[in-house]
Design a protein around this nucleic acid. Structure first.
Lengths: 342, 342
DNA sequence: TTGTACGCGTTATCAG
DNA sequence: CTGATAACGCGTACAA
């Protein structure tokens, strides 16, 4: 591949001049500029970012560390990050921890395993000399320790930070839950069960809070017996559906669309239907919610926005601006046909 | 960030010695090795890939150009690529063309628009000096021109190549379609409608071929009137469902799970059900197919495998091995509950 | 076994 | 306006 030096030689000028021309420094005569540009085009010269990075001590690159690129929230978050980076003339480099494919859910309890993958990833980013890092969570929700030895400005997307100097962009779980439960209440429901996620998970806890708040605002007693913890997947909530439905309820607030899918499955097998025999709402607005029959009313997580806000946040930090510890991205109600008006 | 030179100075040895130690060249005494390693660890030295890349003229990096990272097939393909790269000690850098978010479907007819995004992406990869490129398609199916001016070894994943020196990894559309239609025939169906994708699309054409083949093998006449072209989404096939269902058929072969979703919607609204009143099969095995009621029988596209095969293919090419023009990854039948046995 | 010196491709500095 | 030259951090002949 042809280099700047060769271009210079071919034009009979110095490398400095070629560099100046390429970088639009206006201390160059029109004559030489044209001549050089002609050769550049003709020979298909392409700047070498590697050399440039070395010289400038700046790579114009943002590193993205994703816990799992196949997690449904991740691609859109990354898309948001990339969109903003492109606008700003930054490149992006993505690392994929592949947490799930490595260990399924086993790693969750094991910090040592987790950091055995996480630390090298950050080191890689350091070696690449990225100018900043966005960590995109997919499974873990609390990041206890983010290696800061390298002083690379970093932000967390879709995870709650436990470190002062690593701020985070999260969704407003509590308000999202409050809104969707309020929606049920407005439709006349007062006996509302909950198909919740993992009990110790922070999203679960915050959404329970939102649920309680909505009940409180409507003067409805909170009955812990109506809350059923069933992980985030379809299978467990399918198994738990019978018991929950046997209680005296008219609606179920599912903490994920997949949970709702489990309930739908149970209903289907028993000749019942959401939006007719009982009301169901979900959370996430995954694509599946639009393909369920009837289509599921749910809360949209604005994943693109999470990504965008996260990098903007990061750029602010890189420029030395004062930044808050946390930004909350609101959720939006997607009203479909799974809720019955009483 | 601390450099090799500084480590050397601090240890009272030369940079060459430190470099040799770090790279495991065995011309170093155990004594100095230990001393140097101690300092390296203590000071948190991290190799500078930028400098190394410049010096070695090799970046150990594979570039991934994705048409759309939010396309449902893309993340898993990339995951497969990354898995193999990691095994081989290669880094990965991803570019996202964001075709859909830029222009929705408008670009499809406009090669100029397309290449206005595609060319710079390849140039970027060239500037980064990646050692090879995997192009991951999401929308386009025929890549007519892949910029080869930079002589970077390249392969296409999930797209059909039109260029000799750019081979591709695709799925076996024809055989996949044949298999699933054969499945219907085995269940006793002979009057099988088709909810097809875009008429001019290569996947559509190949799958029609597979459909015809299955009919032929079973001695069933091919009736073009039973084929309905409805794009790849849910809406058009919802609109087309009524007409198709009014024909004398007992089963529908949908060319995508989303198409099947449109048919399901129509059925639901008319009090009918797949797997009871009519048989439906899909294609893709998107997650939605597992959440439809009843769950959809469909063909699984092995996306992970596409990614893996594509990079392995690329590595072969980089090593100068002889490679075929095309590799076909087989599809697999996922048998669920949307097909009725006659 | 260890050190010296050069070059990879670019940009910044300064002198002409 | 243009050119010579010195970095940037690392790897590697070659010399010691």
């Amino acid at each position: 591949m042809i280099t700047l030096k060769e271009i210079a030689k071919e034009c009979g000028v110095s490398t400095a001049t070629v560099s100046n021309i390429l970088n639009g420094k206006n201390k160059v005569s029109e004559e030489t500029r044209e001549k050089v540009m002609a050769v550049v085009k003709e020979r298909g010269y392409k700047l070498n970012y590697v050399a440039q990075g070395l010289r400038k001590q700046k790579t114009q690159t943002i590193g993205v560390i994703a816990e799992d690129i196949v997690q449904f929230t991740t691609p859109e978050i990354i898309e948001g990050i990339m969109e903003v980076c492109e606008e700003r003339g930054y490149r992006t480099i993505v690392q994929n921890l592949r947490l799930y494919s490595r260990w399924q859910d086993l790693w969750f309890d094991n910090e040592k395993m987790y950091y055995s993958v996480m630390d090298p990833a950050v080191q890689e980013m350091a070696s690449i000399r990225v100018d900043g890092i966005v960590y995109v969570a997919g499974h873990a929700r609390n990041i206890h320790r983010f290696p800061s030895e390298y002083q690379i400005p970093s932000v967390l997307a879709y995870a709650y930070s436990q470190e002062k100097d690593v701020p985070s962009v999260v969704i407003d779980d509590e308000e999202g839950a409050r809104l969707i439960v309020e929606h049920l209440i407005k439709k006349g429901h007062t006996k509302i069960g909950v198909m919740a996620g993992e009990q110790e998970n922070i999203h679960t806890k915050l959404r329970i809070l939102g649920y309680q708040k909505a009940l409180f605002d409507a003067g409805i007693l909170y009955n812990p017996e109506l809350v059923c913890y069933a992980g985030w997947g379809k299978e467990l909530s399918y198994g738990a559906a019978e018991e929950l439905l046997s209680k005296d309820i008219t609606a179920i607030f599912c903490m994920s669309d997949r949970n709702a899918g489990g309930v739908y499955k149970y209903l289907f097998e028993n000749g019942k239907q959401a939006g007719r025999d009982i009301s169901i709402v979900g959370f996430d607005d995954e694509m599946i919610s639009d393909f369920m029959t009837p289509r599921l009313t749910t809360m949209r997580i604005d994943r693109l926005q999470i990504g965008k806000r996260a990098v903007e946040f990061l750029f602010d930090k890189m420029e030395g601006k004062e930044v808050p510890d946390e930004i909350k991205v609101p959720c939006r109600l997607i009203d479909r046909e799974s809720v019955l008006e009483l």
